[in-house]
């Protein structure tokens, strides 16, 4: 990794030029919530001015750039002799600007499952390797608890990462692609005062976290508290609507659906991101449902986050972005659920 600085003016020129030559997605305002706070989403931008550089966090995560909500796994073409299967992995390069540290760490978790483990997923790899990621540090919101999950700092998984240190940005350069692009613009060596300002800023950001949860030993606690009434309590609130999994930066589970084109000449095999909170998630042939109750399904979601994923990769699947609560009509707060399990909420 290289460490450099870039002035705000040069960054503007750099991003402006990137936007001109590449499909670029960045945070923009799309709505406002009940308390009049802006709601942001990553959308395609045509100029630097459209970008809300001081945004808080996007309502949906950036995962759908890598795991689209719907994606054709293959198509079947029917002929007199039967059929032929076709697969297309082609993805055009694009740029994501303004990605948060927790979201980059979420991608690293997805990399574990979809790129590095058994049966690497070509669709994901094609998207991952064609997406240029420019990250951006930010002041945590009151509900951000990524610090508790150690995902508020980035080490890899991005191309460029920027931290605002006053007149300029402190810049982490993490790919040769990034290094080559930056040759087009003036960047500066890190000076003594930049290092000081960077560390000061990092300390300031770290001190701003208000939401914390202790996840140590959570994997075993999930097993020990499997029959806990906590699941019933939260399950009673849960609408089993699956919103949490849709906005979650690391939920990757899916369902597969095949559709025959009305012409009867082709059919598509479509993958659609699903949610373990949905009623038929664990239904098997013949209709038996292994998780018929909403509390079973809610529990399973936490179980996968803090037990299943830990068993495979030694870390929680959750990055602490708290998008799930924001998107949850029932306002289910993962921090409160985990605290309930730790019996921290009992006075």
């Amino acid at each position: 990794m290289l460490f450099k600085t870039i002035t705000k003016e040069n960054l503007r020129t750099f991003i402006t030029n990137i936007i001109k030559e590449n499909q670029t997605f960045a945070p923009v305002v799309v709505s406002t919530d009940a308390d009049n706070n802006p709601i942001y989403q990553f959308k395609k931008v045509d100029s630097f001015e459209e970008i809300k550089i001081n945004y808080t966090k996007s309502y949906s995560s950036i995962k759908n750039f890598f795991l689209p909500y719907k994606e054709d796994l293959s198509t079947f073409h029917f002929n007199e002799n039967g059929w032929e299967q076709k697969i297309n992995y082609r993805v055009n390069p694009r740029v994501l600007f303004g990605v948060r540290a927790c979201d980059i760490n979420a991608l690293i978790k997805l990399d574990q499952v979809l790129m590095k483990g058994s049966f690497p997923h070509p669709y994901y790899i094609a998207r991952r390797k064609n997406t240029f990621i420019i990250g951006l540090d930010h002041e945590p919101m009151a509900d951000c608890f990524c610090q508790s999950l150690d995902t508020n700092e980035v080490v890899h998984g991005f191309d460029i990462f920027l931290t605002d240190i006053g007149p300029k940005y402190f810049m982490l350069i993490n790919s040769s692609k990034a290094f080559n692009l930056l040759k087009n613009i003036t960047i500066e060596e890190v000076k003594e005062e930049d290092r000081e300002n960077y560390i000061k800023e990092k300390n300031r950001l770290a001190s701003l976290f208000k939401s914390h949860v202790d996840v140590t030993g959570m994997a075993n606690l999930m097993d020990i508290e499997f029959e806990s009434s906590v699941w019933q309590k939260w399950g009673d609130k849960c609408l089993s609507c699956g919103s949490c999994a849709m906005v979650c930066p690391t939920c990757y589970c899916y369902t597969v659906c095949e559709k025959i084109n009305l012409s009867l000449k082709t059919a598509s095999k479509e993958k659609m991101l699903y949610s373990c909170n949905l009623i038929d998630f664990a239904e098997v042939a013949g209709g038996h449902n292994f998780r018929p109750k909403s509390s079973d399904r809610l529990k399973y979601r936490y179980y996968h986050q803090h037990r299943g994923f830990v068993e495979s990769f030694d870390e929680s699947k959750c990055v602490g972005c708290n998008r799930c609560q924001k998107a949850c009509p029932a306002d289910i707060n993962p921090v409160e659920v985990l605290r309930d399990l730790r019996k921290e909420n009992i006075k």
Binding site: I18, K20, Y89, I125, A126, F132, N184
Partner: peptide
């Protein structure tokens, strides 16, 4: 400023 294509 074009991002190079990776063709899997």
């Amino acid at each position: 400023y074009k991002i190079p294509v990776y063709d899997i």
